[in-house]
Design a protein around this nucleic acid. Structure first.
Length: 461
DNA sequence: TCTGGGGTCCTAGGACCC
DNA sequence: TCTGGGGTCCTAGGACCC
């Protein structure tokens, strides 16, 4: 008798409810929140350079076809009136922390997947009915909206996969609960690409053998799936397609790798620039390594050439190091063997094989006399932002020279604002924050002594 | 229309050890 | 004189996620 004959119900853990919370158009919504003139307008957040990519698109710009991961140049053509802004990760992180503080109040396990996304398995929902789950989800959304002013969508089901699919169906600004026992009804007709873990390659592979829907994937024999997709992934995806998903909701552990990479506006063609860039990326990654209180055994250099092919070279030493000189030396040694035949488009440095370490000396000179028992340096805060990317105000010296659209500024008279545009020695600033509501625009001399760079977080209040 | 930056996990081959 | 078998670690590449 074939296993699964008679199309057995998914053997869900009885009464289990997993919620997936997903903030709506998160990056763009935070921009609209903290820069109120943008509310209702098409906003694109992402790289503003020639090779930039969209990281967030407001619903007003999605109407015209703009999407995350799309080249910014293309999105700009699709949405000519869009306001294009560089990401302000520090602000998104701060909002994210407020959101998940509220989610934590539900109790039970939380698994944060991204700034704007998490699985939750609230204890008090075990054994609940769909109506009760729906009410809890609505309540959660209302609390988030009240505390942050932002819309979240929530999906609920018997496992993570179902919850995740449900939250995308709930968008925008909604709730979708998939009652136990109705999993296959929902999954079967969906395109196979909707499964978490099926990307462009797996999709093509499955299409080639005529498998277009999740139901069709579920109907294959296990051996067929593993032949097509590999043992580990194939086995897992086949189970998920059948609605079987017992994966626990679990807190993420410590990072296993820290990396920094950059894509150049124009390809590099001389070795000196390449070495300089590798050194810079190593320093960047190293800063975050130290901030996280960790040491690394393995250094990996990644270089992408003009042909877009990626080469990586790595070196592992016997002991983990926190020494910049040692890590940078390894990176430099690895660089030349990873050079592409043509120009260099991207350089990345990754530090892995991470271990905790105790910072011994760093604070001796600044510690108060009685701080000898202070162990804080050895206990990295996993939620702390290692490098504070974007959180620190720009270094002095920016004022009067290179304002860029999207910069946060402060003016002695007009208060907090953001740069809408600049050029010809002038800078146009919109003076507003979340609290102020839509504010006035002023054009000032770029070197106005009363104008200075400001902490982006000030726009939240 | 050319394709970011930060991650996680899987695969496959080879070295090395017992 | 002929090809073991299991296990771990390292390296390189790639798929996938947001």
């Amino acid at each position: 008798m074939a296993p699964g004959a008679g199309r057995a119900q998914p053997r869900s853990v009885s009464g289990r409810w997993v919620l997936h919370l997903d903030m709506d158009a998160f990056f763009a919504s935070v921009e609209q929140l903290t820069r109120p003139t943008l509310t209702g307008r098409a906003v694109l957040v992402g790289g503003t350079g020639p090779r930039g990519v969209v990281a967030g698109a407001s619903y007003e710009s999605r109407v015209h076809g703009a999407r995350s991961a799309m080249p910014m140049s293309r999105a700009r053509r699709l949405v000519p009136g869009a306001v294009v802004l560089p990401p302000r990760l520090a602000v998104y992180r701060a909002v994210s922390e407020r959101v998940f503080a509220i989610v934590r109040e539900l109790g039970g396990a939380i698994e944060q997947v991204a700034f704007d996304e998490a699985f939750v398995e609230p204890v008090e929902l075990t054994g609940a009915g769909p109506e009760q789950v729906e009410a809890a989800a609505q309540e959660l959304r209302a609390r988030i909206r009240e505390a942050t002013g932002l819309a979240a969508s929530v999906g609920a089901g018997s496992g993570k996969q179902l919850a995740k699919i449900a939250s995308t169906l709930a968008k925008p600004d909604g709730v979708r609960v998939v009652p136990h026992g109705t999993e296959r009804e929902l999954l079967d007709p969906l395109p196979v690409r909707k499964l978490w873990g099926v990307g462009p390659v797996a999709e093509t592979t499955l299409h080639r053998v005529g498998v277009d829907t999740i139901g069709a994937l579920a109907a294959l024999r296990p051996a067929e799936v593993t032949t097509l997709l590999g043992t580990a992934i194939g086995t897992e995806l086949h189970r998920l397609a059948q609605g079987i998903d017992h994966r626990p909701v679990a807190e993420r552990g410590e990072a296993k790798q820290v990396s920094a990479e950059t894509t150049f506006d124009a390809d590099l063609s001389d070795l000196d620039s390449v070495h300089r860039a590798v050194a810079e990326m190593t320093e960047h990654a190293h800063r975050r390594l130290i901030a996280a209180g960790r040491a690394a055994r393995t250094v990996t250099v990644k270089i992408r050439g003009a042909d877009f092919a990626t080469r990586s070279r790595s070196e592992t030493s016997a002991t983990a190091s926190t020494e910049l000189a040692a890590l940078a030396g390894a990176a430099r040694r690895l660089t030349e063997s990873a050079l592409p035949p043509s120009g260099v488009r991207l350089i990345g440095v990754s530090l892995s094989g991470l271990t905790d370490y105790v910072q011994e000396q760093l604070f001796d000179t600044v510690s108060p006399p009685h701080a000898h028992a202070e162990p804080a340096a050895a206990r990295p805060d996993p939620t702390a932002q290692p490098d504070g990317a974007g959180s620190a105000p720009d270094p002095p010296g920016r004022a009067g020279r290179g304002w860029r659209a999207g910069d946060d500024v402060s003016h002695a008279v007009h208060g907090h604002g953001w740069v809408q545009g600049c050029g010809h020695g002038r800078v146009t600033v919109r003076f507003e924050t979340r609290r102020s509501g839509p504010g006035p625009v002023r054009t000032l001399a770029a070197d106005d002594p009363e104008l200075s760079a400001a902490d982006p977080l000030a726009s939240l209040d």
